[in-house]
Design a protein around this nucleic acid. Sequence first.
DNA 1: AGCGCCTCAATTGCATGCAGTTTGACGGGC
DNA 2: GCCCGTCAAACTGCATGCAATTGAGGCGCT
Lengths: 270, 270
Amino acid sequence: MHNCDKRRHPKHFPQDSPMAPRSASKSAVPSDKVGVICRALRRAIIEQALEPGAKLPEDSLGERFGVSRTIARHALGQLAAEGLVELRRNRIAVVATPSWQEARDAFDIRIELERLVVRQLAGKLTKSQVAELNAHVDAEDHARDGSDAVSIRLATEFHILLANMTNSPILVRYVSEVAYRCCLTLSLYSRPHSSECAINEHRAIIAALVKGDEAKVMSLMHSHLDSVASRALVAPAPRRGRDLLDILAPYAEESEGGRVVKMPKVVRAR
Amino acid sequence: MHNCDKRRHPKHFPQDSPMAPRSASKSAVPSDKVGVICRALRRAIIEQALEPGAKLPEDSLGERFGVSRTIARHALGQLAAEGLVELRRNRIAVVATPSWQEARDAFDIRIELERLVVRQLAGKLTKSQVAELNAHVDAEDHARDGSDAVSIRLATEFHILLANMTNSPILVRYVSEVAYRCCLTLSLYSRPHSSECAINEHRAIIAALVKGDEAKVMSLMHSHLDSVASRALVAPAPRRGRDLLDILAPYAEESEGGRVVKMPKVVRAR
DNA sequence: AGCGCCTCAATTGCATGCAGTTTGACGGGC
DNA sequence: GCCCGTCAAACTGCATGCAATTGAGGCGCT
């Protein structure tokens, strides 16, 4: 097995998320064993403990979480439905590796959805909600020294927190999903810098929400996400040195003849 | 058992969908047995063969489709992730019964998403795509005499067809999901009339798309969906005589003291 | 040495079985 | 007659077992 073992046991998965105890999977999950696994994997993915392309064998998952393959499998199904993992018949599930175009699409959708969020929220936040938002941004600020992973997670959770305040489960679900996808993208195409300036933009959004200026806050959110996207999607080519083969795979058919890798028998089946 | 058996075997499920052989579940499904069940149930739901609240026991599903409960269960999980069915621990899965507010939210999201669709599509359609759209609307027209179920399905599929043309799998998925949800809503809150006028609106949208007028087509789509929504969501109270108890359940706490039903022991637990 | 075939461990696909929970009904008490 | 407690059937939650597929390394051939 080539590089699988390195990442098979990423750390020990954080078994419970501090925030988002409900979020997307509220109604989707039969029991909660599945829910626990989903949340853990989601978090591991957005913190980049699991990089795109990482393998997720049902056995290992089941063993790690103390459940049978059946449950692990079900969890993988849910995550696949969210677009976070890819399931191919008779093959090991892997963390999704969105193409550059898919990433771009995800951001486009995210912009529209989050504009909707702030439109619904403008001028309607309670004092305690504002306090909660400010506290969260403070936490983001505080985490600037820490790992990038935490910063990215917190930044994402800010947006989900906003969505939560709309009290629209559907909207929460979609915003969460698409935000997670965008996180995936970040770990694929972006450099480890990102978040810094985003914090101020978050503060500006809160201010505009409180002021109640719909148009203003929508445009703020738009440009905020636009800049996140453009910081992330600088070039349509993957930058960081990863699995090489795995990352190159999606480009197999549209290789424009640059430096060509040997690719022994990938050509055969694909 | 109250009214369960009547709908336990709705007809025989249409095993394959004429259109949408891929749609939302393309990447979500491990094998295709699950996919087949999902598609069949989705279709049965949007054609209102399965009404909101209808029970979906794993055994019956498995038996009907010739698979084990494991697979049926997995399929239900997927549909739950899409919001089409509700899964409660240790309880029989049921077709989702969105509240009026959820329905409103779904339409709001749908409007934004579909505006995005037509924005991306304006002026970019190929001849054959236009032909396909026209053919579809012709089919809608032709189906006006037929059952409401088919009309509703075709109207919904028109929107999904549009989304497909963006070549953005994510967008397709979200539009499909939310459109299906809106169908659910229609079968809950709307009267059997709807589609008639929608056909002309569809034609107008195609025309504007061809003309390439972004602003125009976005506003057309907006008002089209708005009018569908307002035709559907006339009153926040359910109209058609359905399960009574099931439908009234969500209103248990906000009963404004109109004619009260007896409700023998629903009060106890709920 | 290089190339292809073949075999085997690893892994998924799926059904079945058992245990626990809910449902709905029957029967006794008020 | 009505209400409540008890019970059996129905259903879900989950693990396990077996068959089928994959892909990776080894072997022989050129």
